[in-house]
């Protein structure tokens, strides 16, 4: 779990993003690949429990959310986050490729679903759709 360091450009950015995934590689990949200047990564978390803590600390506008994680999975975490802030926008980024899981995530409050593995282009298209 980590709070993002300020980079002096934060004042120009208007949307705060929290990245949740139990893989360090995936968290760095998402942070590195997203190409939107108006997005500021305010924190990362490796499970649902950490994500809730970071959510309360950073009050993000958008969240990318893995589903298969230890301690608290993504579906439960989405429900809790949406309860805290109904207007939050959540993009699920998961390897789980069955339709029923995608439907359940959306019913819990997710706004988009991107399957792993993904290209940078697919990631940015999914984030752009979430921001629109």
């Amino acid at each position: 779990m980590g709070l993002a360091q300020g980079n002096g450009a934060g004042s120009r950015r208007s949307l705060k993003l929290l990245i949740v995934d139990d893989s360090n590689i995936m968290r760095r990949r998402i942070e590195r690949s997203q190409q939107f200047e108006e997005l500021q990564v305010v924190g990362t978390a490796s499970n649902g429990v950490e994500a809730l803590e970071m959510f309360r600390k950073t009050d993000p506008d958008m969240v990318t959310m893995d589903l298969t994680m230890p301690q608290m999975d993504g579906i439960e975490c989405i429900s809790k986050i949406v309860h805290l802030k109904p207007a939050v926008r959540i993009l699920v980024i998961s390897a789980l490729a069955d339709k029923a899981t995608a439907v359940e995530a959306m019913e819990c409050g997710a706004n988009g679903f991107l399957n792993k593995p993904f290209t940078d282009r697919q990631l940015n298209e999914a984030i752009a759709e979430l921001m629109s």
Binding site: S23, T68, S94, A95, L96, A97, D98, A100, T101, N115, K116, P117
Partner: peptide, 14 residues
């Protein structure tokens, strides 16, 4: 391993 196994749910179901 997680990605390949998770993708298998497309055919095996939830």
């Amino acid at each position: 391993a997680n990605t390949i196994s998770g993708n298998a749910r497309r055919d095996f179901g939830r």
